[in-house]
Design a protein around this nucleic acid. Structure first.
Lengths: 215, 215
DNA sequence: AAGCAATCTTGACACTGTCTATATTGAGCG
DNA sequence: CGCTCAATATAGACAGTGTCAAGATTGCTT
């Protein structure tokens, strides 16, 4: 007889549930994100992580080969969350894309990056991308997210009158704008969080005009 | 009699030359940047730094109170370099600002961020800005740089016809675009460096149209 | 020549990631 | 039921890190 509470509740339906601890992999991912959020990158260590979860220092290494791999796991979850945002179509007035819809989309993106700052930093940080050690699953999840973004931009362009704008290029540049705003806010360079809405609207207007005004 | 080569050459004209080693503070800053560039953030440690310069592990602590303070010093130098770029006025056709001038400016900015990636990452990274431990001199240097950028944008606007665009807001959003492009390239998310010019031109055109087309 | 502050050094401590055993456990099969 | 085995957890160890404290050296100033 074990004194683990999980023994009383049938949770075997979860496929990859670890044996001993009960749900270690899941808890590692959550605790890692919590530490990143509350104490920053320097506050996350494998040892503290393990201690906070009541396991030995090397226990997490049975679920993630590396600290790097753990961070990849966290980022992967971030991309999954981002896709929900990027895939949700903005409201459409009378079946046609409007500037208001673009505004909404921009705000959603920036809001996501702020509310999930600890994920966003990993998802688009040099720590992972320059390491040449990206998990395959992370790479594909990230690719899907960018694909979904391009899909969105294509919707904006359906009603566009400026035929001089290349779809991919515009997607890249507009994404750069969103990413730049997000990073400046997340990294604490723009501390004036109240300016978020104004900046978002300015960006959205810029996008919309770029697409709908003949060059 | 000392065997230091500096003893044979009069370098006392340099104001803050350290006593024993000859030029330690300067060399620390350079070696730090070199390590960051060649081995990434994880490749820079105070101890390795000292060892590479042939001094003891704690010698650098007499020139920088912290590792953080050292990084602030590196970033500060980066801002000084950036100001050269941002202050250099783009060519002007017939005394009036042109789209080509904006293109040039955009390219200069992005090129700077790529060629000085190790500085740029520190200058605009969370590592420093979220630490609440910014050096006063760094803070003022960064402020000056942003002020110079706004100055540039004002030049763009001198000939603008779209009076609906607020100067500060536009400066923030356009800077977000440049920063976003730079980070995506630096952090290794956009690996296609050949796309830099195309993206820069697309961004410049977007800026220009935003300012010169009536809303 | 003396004193003093700036500079450099060694020693120490707590902390990190992670490798190498070793131990425990739960699941599957006879 | 009982055995086996792989999955999971553990303790020990090692090199590396930032940085504090105490002492040694140096060169400028008086």
């Amino acid at each position: 007889m074990t004194n683990s509470p999980e023994a009383l509740i049938d949770t075997t339906s979860v496929s990859d549930k670890p044996y001993h601890h009960g749900d270690l992999r899941r808890q590692i991912l959550d605790e890692a994100a919590r530490l990143l959020r509350e104490e920053g990158e320097s506050g996350l260590s494998m040892r503290k992580l393990a201690q906070n979860l009541g396991v030995s220092r090397t226990a997490p290494y049975h679920h993630f080969t590396d600290k790097q791999a753990l961070l990849c796991g966290v980022a992967e979850e971030g991309f999954r969350r981002l896709q929900e945002v990027v895939r949700t179509p903005p409201f459409v007035d009378g079946g046609e894309m409007s500037e208001a819809a673009v505004r909404l989309f921009v705000k959603r993106y920036v809001q996501f990056s702020i509310e999930n700052a600890e994920y966003y930093e990993l998802m688009f940080g040099a720590r992972l991308w320059k390491s040449q050690q990206l998990t395959d699953s992370l790479r594909s999840e990230a690719y899907d997210a960018f694909k979904a973004y391009i899909e969105q931009v294509r919707l904006w362009q359906q009603s566009m009158s400026n035929t001089d704008v290349d779809a991919l290029r515009f997607a890249q540049v507009s994404w750069s704008t969103l990413h730049g705003m997000s990073r400046l806010l997340i990294d604490g360079i723009y501390l004036d969080v109240t300016a978020i809405n104004v900046m978002s609207d300015t960006a959205a207007k810029m996008f919309w005009q770029q697409l709908h005004i003949p060059s």
